[in-house]
Protein backbone atom coordinates (compact mmCIF):
# COMPACT_ATOMS: atom_id res chain seq x y z
CA UNK A 1 0.00 0.00 0.00
CA UNK A 2 2.56 2.56 1.13
CA UNK A 3 4.87 1.45 -1.60
CA UNK A 4 2.25 2.07 -4.27
CA UNK A 5 1.48 5.37 -2.64
CA UNK A 6 5.15 6.32 -2.82
CA UNK A 7 5.34 5.31 -6.48
CA UNK A 8 2.26 7.31 -7.37
CA UNK A 9 3.56 10.29 -5.45
CA UNK A 10 6.88 10.05 -7.16
CA UNK A 11 5.18 9.78 -10.54
CA UNK A 12 3.11 12.92 -9.96
CA UNK A 13 6.07 14.85 -8.50
CA UNK A 14 8.18 13.85 -11.47
CA UNK A 15 5.44 15.05 -13.84
CA UNK A 16 5.32 18.43 -12.15
CA UNK A 17 9.09 18.99 -12.16
CA UNK A 18 10.31 21.87 -14.32
CA UNK A 19 12.26 20.78 -17.37
CA UNK A 20 14.74 22.81 -19.33
CA UNK A 21 12.76 22.98 -22.62
CA UNK A 22 10.15 24.90 -20.68
CA UNK A 23 12.52 27.85 -20.63
CA UNK A 24 12.49 28.08 -24.44
CA UNK A 25 9.19 29.90 -24.99
CA UNK A 26 10.04 32.39 -22.25
CA UNK A 27 13.48 32.99 -23.68
CA UNK A 28 11.84 33.57 -27.05
CA UNK A 29 9.43 36.06 -25.51
CA UNK A 30 12.29 37.98 -23.86
CA UNK A 31 14.46 37.74 -26.97
CA UNK A 32 11.66 39.16 -29.13
CA UNK A 33 11.77 42.32 -27.04
CA UNK A 34 15.38 42.98 -28.05
CA UNK A 35 15.60 41.40 -31.50
CA UNK A 36 12.39 42.63 -33.17
CA UNK A 37 11.44 45.83 -31.31
CA UNK A 38 9.47 47.01 -34.35
CA UNK A 39 7.09 44.09 -34.02
CA UNK A 40 6.15 44.50 -30.37
CA UNK A 41 2.62 45.63 -31.23
CA UNK A 42 2.12 42.28 -32.96
CA UNK A 43 3.99 40.62 -30.11
CA UNK A 44 1.54 42.06 -27.59
CA UNK A 45 -1.40 40.71 -29.57
CA UNK A 46 0.30 37.30 -29.72
CA UNK A 47 0.84 37.29 -25.95
CA UNK A 48 -2.83 38.21 -25.40
CA UNK A 49 -3.91 35.42 -27.75
CA UNK A 50 -1.67 32.98 -25.86
CA UNK A 51 -3.47 33.82 -22.61
CA UNK A 52 -6.79 33.26 -24.38
CA UNK A 53 -5.65 29.94 -25.88
CA UNK A 54 -4.22 28.87 -22.52
CA UNK A 55 -7.62 29.47 -20.91
CA UNK A 56 -9.22 27.28 -23.58
CA UNK A 57 -6.65 24.54 -22.98
CA UNK A 58 -7.73 24.33 -19.34
CA UNK A 59 -11.27 23.33 -20.28
CA UNK A 60 -10.69 21.62 -23.62
CA UNK A 61 -7.32 19.95 -23.18
CA UNK A 62 -7.74 18.93 -19.56
CA UNK A 63 -11.46 18.74 -18.77
CA UNK A 64 -12.52 17.76 -22.31
CA UNK A 65 -15.21 20.42 -22.65
CA UNK A 66 -15.69 21.11 -26.36
CA UNK A 67 -16.85 24.67 -26.90
CA UNK A 68 -17.51 26.79 -29.95
CA UNK A 69 -18.23 29.90 -27.92
CA UNK A 70 -15.20 30.70 -25.81
CA UNK A 71 -15.09 34.21 -27.27
CA UNK A 72 -18.11 34.95 -25.04
CA UNK A 73 -15.80 35.39 -22.06
CA UNK A 74 -13.01 37.11 -23.96
CA UNK A 75 -15.61 39.58 -25.21
CA UNK A 76 -17.24 39.98 -21.81
CA UNK A 77 -13.85 40.92 -20.36
CA UNK A 78 -13.04 43.26 -23.24
CA UNK A 79 -16.36 45.10 -22.96
CA UNK A 80 -16.15 45.23 -19.14
CA UNK A 81 -12.70 46.80 -19.19
CA UNK A 82 -13.60 49.08 -22.08
CA UNK A 83 -16.85 50.33 -20.55
CA UNK A 84 -15.20 50.89 -17.19
CA UNK A 85 -12.94 53.40 -18.89
CA UNK A 86 -15.30 54.81 -21.52
CA UNK A 87 -18.31 55.33 -19.24
CA UNK A 88 -16.94 55.56 -15.71
CA UNK A 89 -13.59 57.14 -16.51
CA UNK A 90 -11.53 54.51 -14.67
CA UNK A 91 -8.40 53.74 -16.68
CA UNK A 92 -5.97 52.22 -14.20
CA UNK A 93 -4.65 49.31 -16.33
CA UNK A 94 -4.16 46.56 -13.74
CA UNK A 95 -7.46 46.92 -11.91
CA UNK A 96 -9.37 47.52 -15.14
CA UNK A 97 -7.93 44.31 -16.56
CA UNK A 98 -8.80 42.41 -13.38
CA UNK A 99 -12.33 43.81 -13.64
CA UNK A 100 -12.49 42.26 -17.11
CA UNK A 101 -11.39 38.97 -15.57
CA UNK A 102 -14.05 39.16 -12.88
CA UNK A 103 -16.84 39.86 -15.36
CA UNK A 104 -15.56 37.12 -17.68
CA UNK A 105 -15.45 34.71 -14.75
CA UNK A 106 -18.93 35.70 -13.64
CA UNK A 107 -20.29 35.11 -17.14
CA UNK A 108 -18.48 31.77 -17.17
CA UNK A 109 -19.88 30.75 -13.80
CA UNK A 110 -23.49 31.57 -14.70
CA UNK A 111 -23.44 30.03 -18.19
CA UNK A 112 -21.29 27.10 -17.08
CA UNK A 113 -23.64 26.28 -14.21
CA UNK A 114 -26.49 25.91 -16.68
CA UNK A 115 -24.72 24.57 -19.77
CA UNK A 116 -22.34 22.00 -18.31
CA UNK A 117 -25.24 19.68 -17.53
CA UNK A 118 -25.37 18.98 -21.27
CA UNK A 119 -22.85 17.28 -23.51
CA UNK A 120 -22.01 16.33 -27.06
CA UNK A 121 -23.70 18.19 -29.87
CA UNK A 122 -26.16 19.87 -27.50
CA UNK A 123 -23.34 21.43 -25.49
CA UNK A 124 -21.59 22.46 -28.69
CA UNK A 125 -24.74 24.20 -29.91
CA UNK A 126 -25.42 25.80 -26.53
CA UNK A 127 -21.93 27.29 -26.23
CA UNK A 128 -22.12 28.51 -29.82
CA UNK A 129 -25.52 30.14 -29.45
CA UNK A 130 -24.71 31.62 -26.04
CA UNK A 131 -21.77 33.49 -27.52
CA UNK A 132 -23.84 34.69 -30.48
CA UNK A 133 -26.65 35.73 -28.14
CA UNK A 134 -24.15 37.84 -26.21
CA UNK A 135 -22.93 39.35 -29.47
CA UNK A 136 -26.51 40.22 -30.46
CA UNK A 137 -27.11 41.70 -27.01
CA UNK A 138 -24.00 43.85 -27.33
CA UNK A 139 -25.21 44.89 -30.77
CA UNK A 140 -28.62 45.91 -29.43
CA UNK A 141 -27.31 47.69 -26.30
CA UNK A 142 -25.86 50.45 -28.45
CA UNK A 143 -25.89 53.11 -25.72
CA UNK A 144 -23.51 51.06 -23.63
CA UNK A 145 -21.41 49.16 -26.11
CA UNK A 146 -21.42 51.46 -29.13
CA UNK A 147 -23.17 48.66 -31.05
CA UNK A 148 -21.95 47.98 -34.54
CA UNK A 149 -19.67 51.05 -34.57
CA UNK A 150 -17.68 49.81 -31.61
CA UNK A 151 -16.87 51.20 -28.20
CA UNK A 152 -14.72 54.31 -28.36
CA UNK A 153 -13.36 56.68 -25.72
CA UNK A 154 -11.25 54.15 -23.82
CA UNK A 155 -8.34 55.94 -22.19
CA UNK A 156 -5.80 54.02 -20.14
CA UNK A 157 -3.61 55.65 -17.48
CA UNK A 158 0.15 55.09 -17.27
CA UNK A 159 1.10 51.71 -15.83
CA UNK A 160 1.79 51.91 -12.06
CA UNK A 161 1.34 55.65 -12.42
CA UNK A 162 4.76 56.07 -14.03
CA UNK A 163 5.30 54.05 -17.22
CA UNK A 164 3.52 55.76 -20.04
CA UNK A 165 2.71 54.10 -23.34
CA UNK A 166 5.28 54.58 -26.02
CA UNK A 167 4.81 54.47 -29.74
CA UNK A 168 6.35 50.99 -30.09
CA UNK A 169 4.30 49.42 -27.34
CA UNK A 170 7.26 48.35 -25.20
CA UNK A 171 5.47 49.06 -21.93
CA UNK A 172 2.41 47.17 -22.94
CA UNK A 173 4.39 44.20 -24.21
CA UNK A 174 6.10 43.87 -20.82
CA UNK A 175 2.81 44.23 -18.98
CA UNK A 176 1.15 41.54 -21.12
CA UNK A 177 4.10 39.17 -20.66
CA UNK A 178 3.93 39.54 -16.86
CA UNK A 179 0.20 38.80 -16.96
CA UNK A 180 0.88 35.76 -19.17
CA UNK A 181 3.47 34.51 -16.70
CA UNK A 182 1.02 34.79 -13.80
CA UNK A 183 -1.74 33.07 -15.80
CA UNK A 184 0.64 30.32 -16.83
CA UNK A 185 1.78 29.67 -13.26
CA UNK A 186 -1.85 29.49 -12.16
CA UNK A 187 -2.67 27.07 -14.99
CA UNK A 188 0.40 24.93 -14.35
CA UNK A 189 -0.39 24.68 -10.66
CA UNK A 190 -4.00 23.73 -11.40
CA UNK A 191 -3.26 20.98 -13.90
CA UNK A 192 -0.74 19.31 -11.61
CA UNK A 193 -2.98 19.53 -8.54
CA UNK A 194 -5.33 16.77 -7.39
CA UNK A 195 -8.15 18.92 -8.77
CA UNK A 196 -6.43 19.07 -12.16
CA UNK A 197 -5.93 15.29 -12.25
CA UNK A 198 -9.61 14.78 -11.48
CA UNK A 199 -10.45 16.90 -14.52
CA UNK A 200 -8.35 14.61 -16.69
CA UNK A 201 -10.27 11.73 -15.13
CA UNK A 202 -13.56 13.34 -16.09
CA UNK A 203 -12.31 13.77 -19.63
CA UNK A 204 -11.21 10.17 -19.81
CA UNK A 205 -14.18 8.44 -18.23
CA UNK A 206 -16.93 10.49 -16.73
CA UNK A 207 -18.98 7.49 -15.52
CA UNK A 208 -16.09 6.16 -13.49
CA UNK A 209 -15.48 9.57 -11.94
CA UNK A 210 -19.14 9.67 -10.96
CA UNK A 211 -18.63 6.19 -9.58
CA UNK A 212 -15.72 7.12 -7.33
CA UNK A 213 -17.76 9.99 -5.98
CA UNK A 214 -16.23 12.98 -7.76
CA UNK A 215 -18.63 15.93 -7.83
CA UNK A 216 -18.33 16.15 -11.61
CA UNK A 217 -20.61 19.09 -12.27
CA UNK A 218 -19.01 21.18 -9.52
CA UNK A 219 -15.50 20.43 -10.81
CA UNK A 220 -16.45 21.32 -14.36
CA UNK A 221 -18.13 24.57 -13.33
CA UNK A 222 -15.06 25.48 -11.26
CA UNK A 223 -12.57 25.00 -14.09
CA UNK A 224 -14.97 26.64 -16.55
CA UNK A 225 -15.18 29.70 -14.31
CA UNK A 226 -11.40 29.89 -13.91
CA UNK A 227 -10.96 29.51 -17.66
CA UNK A 228 -13.57 32.17 -18.39
CA UNK A 229 -11.90 34.55 -15.95
CA UNK A 230 -8.58 34.01 -17.69
CA UNK A 231 -10.25 34.62 -21.05
CA UNK A 232 -11.76 37.78 -19.53
CA UNK A 233 -8.29 38.94 -18.48
CA UNK A 234 -7.09 38.40 -22.06
CA UNK A 235 -10.11 40.38 -23.27
CA UNK A 236 -9.34 43.18 -20.82
CA UNK A 237 -5.76 43.37 -22.04
CA UNK A 238 -7.04 43.39 -25.60
CA UNK A 239 -9.37 46.34 -24.90
CA UNK A 240 -6.59 48.28 -23.18
CA UNK A 241 -3.97 47.64 -25.84
CA UNK A 242 -6.29 48.64 -28.71
CA UNK A 243 -8.29 51.33 -26.84
CA UNK A 244 -11.18 50.13 -28.97
CA UNK A 245 -13.67 47.26 -28.72
CA UNK A 246 -15.92 46.01 -31.53
CA UNK A 247 -18.51 43.23 -31.74
CA UNK A 248 -15.78 41.12 -33.28
CA UNK A 249 -14.49 40.23 -29.78
CA UNK A 250 -17.60 38.08 -29.28
CA UNK A 251 -17.72 36.59 -32.76
CA UNK A 252 -17.89 32.97 -33.78
CA UNK A 253 -14.73 33.42 -35.80
CA UNK A 254 -12.82 34.45 -32.66
CA UNK A 255 -14.05 31.30 -30.90
CA UNK A 256 -13.03 29.27 -33.93
CA UNK A 257 -9.60 30.85 -34.35
CA UNK A 258 -8.58 30.30 -30.73
CA UNK A 259 -9.61 26.66 -31.12
CA UNK A 260 -7.53 26.34 -34.28
CA UNK A 261 -4.49 27.95 -32.62
CA UNK A 262 -4.68 25.61 -29.66
CA UNK A 263 -5.14 22.47 -31.74
CA UNK A 264 -2.31 23.53 -34.02
CA UNK A 265 0.06 23.69 -31.05
CA UNK A 266 -1.41 20.70 -29.24
CA UNK A 267 -4.09 20.42 -26.57
CA UNK A 268 -3.63 19.36 -22.96
CA UNK A 269 -0.01 20.42 -22.68
CA UNK A 270 -0.16 24.17 -21.81
CA UNK A 271 2.73 25.03 -24.15
CA UNK A 272 0.59 24.08 -27.12
CA UNK A 273 -1.13 27.44 -26.64
CA UNK A 274 2.25 29.22 -26.97
CA UNK A 275 3.44 27.40 -30.06
CA UNK A 276 0.11 27.27 -31.91
CA UNK A 277 -0.66 30.94 -31.32
CA UNK A 278 2.80 32.17 -32.26
CA UNK A 279 2.88 30.07 -35.44
CA UNK A 280 -0.67 31.01 -36.46
CA UNK A 281 -0.33 34.74 -35.87
CA UNK A 282 3.13 35.11 -37.38
CA UNK A 283 2.07 33.21 -40.50
CA UNK A 284 -1.12 35.24 -40.68
CA UNK A 285 0.79 38.49 -40.42
CA UNK A 286 3.16 37.48 -43.22
CA UNK A 287 0.87 35.56 -45.57
CA UNK A 288 -2.32 37.59 -45.29
CA UNK A 289 -0.32 40.58 -46.53
CA UNK A 290 0.54 38.69 -49.70
CA UNK A 291 -2.88 37.21 -50.35
CA UNK A 292 -5.75 36.74 -47.88
CA UNK A 293 -7.18 33.84 -49.91
CA UNK A 294 -3.86 32.05 -49.94
CA UNK A 295 -3.65 32.39 -46.17
CA UNK A 296 -7.21 31.21 -45.62
CA UNK A 297 -6.75 28.22 -47.90
CA UNK A 298 -3.44 27.39 -46.26
CA UNK A 299 -4.77 27.48 -42.72
CA UNK A 300 -7.74 25.33 -43.76
CA UNK A 301 -5.45 22.79 -45.37
CA UNK A 302 -3.13 22.83 -42.36
CA UNK A 303 -6.09 22.17 -40.08
CA UNK A 304 -7.24 19.20 -42.17
CA UNK A 305 -3.73 17.76 -42.21
CA UNK A 306 -3.31 18.27 -38.46
CA UNK A 307 -6.63 16.57 -37.69
CA UNK A 308 -5.92 13.61 -39.96
CA UNK A 309 -2.24 13.03 -39.31
CA UNK A 310 -0.95 15.10 -36.39
CA UNK A 311 -3.83 14.97 -34.00
CA UNK A 312 -1.57 15.93 -31.09
CA UNK A 313 -0.52 19.18 -32.70
CA UNK A 314 2.94 20.52 -33.56
CA UNK A 315 4.31 19.76 -30.10
CA UNK A 316 2.92 16.24 -30.24
CA UNK A 317 4.54 15.75 -33.64
CA UNK A 318 7.87 16.97 -32.27
CA UNK A 319 7.56 14.55 -29.38
CA UNK A 320 6.84 11.63 -31.72
CA UNK A 321 9.85 12.58 -33.80
CA UNK A 322 12.10 12.52 -30.74
CA UNK A 323 10.72 9.18 -29.59
CA UNK A 324 11.28 7.66 -33.02
CA UNK A 325 14.87 8.89 -33.13
CA UNK A 326 15.92 7.51 -29.78
Amino acid sequence: MTEHYQTARHFLRERERWRWPEALPWLAIVAAFFIVPDYLALGTQIVIAIIFALSLDLILGYAGIITLGHAAYFGAGAYATGMLSAHLGWGEPISAMLFGGIIGGLAGFISGWVLLRYHGLTLLMLTLTTAILMQETANAAEEWTGGFDGLVGISIWPLLGTFDYDLWGKTYYCFAVVVLLVCFLVARTIVHSAFGRSLVGIKGNVERMHGVGTPVHGRLVTIYTISAAMAGVAGGLFAESNAYVTLDVLSFSRSGVVLIMLVLGGTGRLYGAFVGTAVYMTLEDELAKLSPEFWEFGIGLLLVVVVLFFRRGLLGALEDLRVRRS
Partner: peptide
Amino acid sequence: LYRRLYEADELDHVLLSIGLVLMATAAIT
Protein backbone atom coordinates in the same frame (compact mmCIF):
# COMPACT_ATOMS: atom_id res chain seq x y z
CA LEU B 1 -11.98 12.41 -45.47
CA TYR B 2 -15.13 12.14 -43.36
CA ARG B 3 -15.03 8.36 -43.16
CA ARG B 4 -11.68 8.36 -41.42
CA LEU B 5 -13.13 10.25 -38.50
CA TYR B 6 -16.47 8.53 -37.84
CA GLU B 7 -15.04 6.97 -34.71
CA ALA B 8 -13.35 10.18 -33.54
CA ASP B 9 -14.99 12.69 -31.21
CA GLU B 10 -16.91 15.84 -32.07
CA LEU B 11 -13.85 18.06 -31.74
CA ASP B 12 -12.15 16.29 -34.65
CA HIS B 13 -15.31 16.58 -36.76
CA VAL B 14 -15.54 20.29 -36.01
CA LEU B 15 -11.89 20.91 -36.83
CA LEU B 16 -11.83 18.93 -40.06
CA SER B 17 -14.98 20.56 -41.34
CA ILE B 18 -13.89 24.08 -40.32
CA GLY B 19 -10.70 23.43 -42.28
CA LEU B 20 -12.76 22.41 -45.31
CA VAL B 21 -15.00 25.49 -45.03
CA LEU B 22 -11.97 27.78 -44.92
CA MET B 23 -10.53 26.09 -48.00
CA ALA B 24 -13.84 26.29 -49.85
CA THR B 25 -14.27 29.96 -48.98
CA ALA B 26 -10.76 30.78 -50.17
CA ALA B 27 -11.11 28.74 -53.36
CA ILE B 28 -14.43 30.37 -54.26
CA THR B 29 -13.03 33.84 -53.56
